[in-house]
Design a binder for these strands. Structure first.
Length: 280
DNA sequence: AGCTTTCCCTGATTGC
DNA sequence: TGCAATCAGGGAAAGC
């Protein structure tokens, strides 16, 4: 489940491998991963173009082409973007293959087929992908305690659900929502509008800190990335609470609670992240 | 506008 | 051994 740090890791490892490479051919094994335009037109328009830079915004990647055209890509749950040498064995669930001018390939692999590609022409405004509806990047100076307080104050839903809302802040998924709330010592079920100023300030500070640390931990080489099939982010030993329900809290030793919030599996410490009490 | 529900997908796991 | 039910979850869309 790639979130901001994993998508950033993909950007960093993929960009230098495709930049300046000309696309000789595009093969769409599964047309459904191409949301716009149709698969046939997509392949025709992209063929012969040359890759330029790669950008990340929230969990979206934008692969720029030298013409000014660009792909937008969302990996959703199980998408992988994998540069491979020519002749590399093809994995199951490979939906899209870009054959490059040095014989290497850029492949899109996605077990559950939730991921999507969009092609936008040079200068074309993006009102298709959802990037235009994203909230600020967690590293943007605009994402501060005052902004977050304003967003949370008008919502009654659980604070964790708000962190998962991409229009409030971009890039957080289930893992880093739990990790950020643990670091800020806030119970994930707390109604968003009941957080104190201090709690909001802690959360606004911890979110970028947790994500920055995760990005640093995701640094990978092209060889290592290829060997993992583009799934090097699967490791979870790094996490304090995510995936550790029932185990002792790393801070206080109390058993971590597992519950479901907004349909998402959630883990928190019942001792460090106290639920709302009457005094508050 | 905010919130809830449903849908899209397949592999792993569980139950009979 | 085999088959069905359940779960995992990011985001769009529809309905309240």
């Amino acid at each position: 489940m790639p979130e901001l740090p994993e998508v950033e890791a993909v950007k960093r490892v993929v960009e230098p491998q495709i930049r300046g490479r000309r696309i000789q051919r595009v093969t769409a094994h599964n047309p459904k991963v191409i949301a716009r335009p149709g698969a046939e037109e997509f392949c025709r328009l992209v063929q012969g173009q040359t890759f330029s830079t790669v950008d990340r915004r929230g969990k979206f990647l934008t692969l720029h082409l030298e013409s000014g055209d660009r792909f937008v890509l969302h990996l959703r749950m199980t998408g992988n973007l994998l540069p491979t040498p020519g002749g590399h064995p093809q994995e199951k669930h490979t939906h899209l293959v870009f054959t490059l001018d040095d014989g290497s390939e850029l492949r899109y692999i996605d077990l559950r087929r939730f991921g999507r590609f969009w092609l936008l022409r040079a200068g074309e405004e993006d009102c298709f992908t959802g990037i235009d509806r994203l909230g600020p990047e967690p590293f943007d100076p605009a994402f501060d305690a005052a902004y977050l307080a304003g967003q949370l104050a008008r919502r009654k839903r659980a604070v964790k659900e708000c962190l998962l809302d991409q229009s409030i802040v971009a890039g957080i998924g289930n893992i880093y929502a739990d990790e950020s709330l643990f670091a800020a010592r806030i119970c994930p079920t707390r109604p968003a509008n009941t957080l104190t100023q201090e709690e909001v300030a802690r959360l606004a500070r911890q979110i970028p800190a947790i994500l920055r640390a995760a990005i640093q931990g995701k640094e990978t080489s092209p060889e290592e990335y290829l060997a993992s099939g583009g799934r090097n982010y699967r490791g979870s030993s790094f996490f304090q609470v995510y995936g550790h329900g029932g185990e002792p809290c790393p801070a206080c030793g109390a058993p971590l609670c597992r519950t479901v919030i907004g349909g998402r599996s959630s883990v928190y410490c019942p001792c460090c992240q106290l639920p709302l009490t009457k005094e508050r």
